[in-house]
């Protein structure tokens, strides 16, 4: 009787457990297949104006280049008004969009450039299944791990640093480690001129630190990521503190840190990690932890830099030649 019970029990197990195993495996596969992403869309209406002044002493006839937020899978911009009327919209070598405006301004005269556009930003949070992270395809690696005037991957100090603090077999881990190191070793100060990572990295005590503002933070990150084969690029635009606020800059003032109270021009980083694609990396929004794939809709991206040696000239938003840009303002409000 007992022998029979034993045999039956073993037979049942022999049949049932393999089925359980198959179910368990496929259940696991499903989890892997659906990394969760939550989106937080927000639409702004932006009124932008810029004051150009002719201080040259002759009539100035020139083209002014006005940066417009480029459309991506997470950003949708619709231009409602541009004054003076642009000749056309174009893209630069990076694919960033600008309006081309011809102006004629007499000596000592002023000219206002006015734009209105809506921009829908998809904030998002990715709940990563870290094991799914992959390194990039060759073509992406070739383009986005190359060096540039700001990202010198042959700098031995940065190369050694990157290998020491952030080498990993998992690209997401590499992304996190670099961000953590940069954040932990930041000497924040507003910087004049773009120094590039070679000059952003400085000695501090026995170690190294990043000195500068968001641009130096981003440039150092991109260089370290590229050294380790993680495709990276910079994004320029704004970081707001609330959904409705006005940002302005008077170019004749030299305000130091006070500037941050009314100007949120910002640069951050994106890394390319299949299967998710480009993921935003933010190191300055929350100084207690870097945010990777956790992108608030308080960011308003305008364009990216990643393919060209000199980056994008459109970082400056409004680009005249002989005319002088005296004042620029972005008024962000809730849009429909």
């Amino acid at each position: 009787m007992g022998k029979r019970y034993l045999i039956i029990a073993v037979l049942v197990l022999a049949f049932v457990l393999p089925f359980n195993t198959i179910e368990w495996k496929s259940g696991r596969a499903e989890v892997l297949a659906e990394t969760r992403i939550e989106f937080y869309n927000y639409t702004y209406i932006v009124h932008e104006r810029a004051l150009l002044v002719n201080k040259v002493g002759r009539v100035v006839r020139e083209y002014v280049y006005v940066s417009i937020p480029r459309n991506t899978s997470r950003v949708y911009c619709r231009v409602l008004k541009v004054e003076p009327e642009p000749l056309r919209f174009e893209t630069d070598e990076e694919g960033n969009v600008f309006a081309l405006i011809f102006v004629e301004v007499k000596p000592e005269e002023e000219l206002w450039i006015n734009l209105t556009y809506t921009i829908r930003v998809s904030g998002y949070k990715v709940y990563f299944e870290k094991d799914r992270a992959l390194w990039p395809p060759l073509e992406i690696a070739r383009i986005y791990t190359d060096d540039s005037i700001y990202w010198n991957i042959d700098n031995e100090t940065l190369r050694n640093l990157a290998y020491k603090v952030a080498y990993s077999d998992n690209p997401l881990e590499t992304a996190e480690k670099i961000a953590k190191w940069v954040q932990d070793n930041l000497m924040y100060e507003i910087t004049r001129g773009r120094k590039g990572s070679d000059h952003a990295i400085v000695k501090r005590g026995l170690g190294l630190a990043v000195r500068g503002d968001c641009v130096e933070v981003a440039d150092t990150y991109v260089t370290m990521a590229r050294v380790l084969g993680l495709p990276a690029r910079t994004v320029f635009g704004f970081l707001l503190t609330t959904h409705e606020e006005k940002h302005w800059l008077n170019t004749s003032l030299q305000e130091g840190m006070n500037l941050l109270t009314h100007w949120g021009g910002h640069m951050w980083v994106q890394v390319y990690v299949p299967p998710w694609g480009w993921i935003d990396v933010e190191m300055l929004e929350d100084l207690s932890r870097p945010k990777i794939g956790d992108f608030t809709n308080l960011h308003v991206p305008f364009g990216v830099e990643g393919k060209t040696f000199y980056g994008s000239g459109l970082l400056e938003f409004i680009i005249p030649s002989y005319l002088e840009l005296e004042y620029i303002e972005f008024d962000f409000k809730r849009g429909e």
Partner: peptide, 12 residues
């Protein structure tokens, strides 16, 4: 010509 960077912007 100077460039101010945190705010990404050029200042003349």
């Amino acid at each position: 010509l100077l460039l101010l960077c945190i705010p990404i912007f050029s200042i003349k």
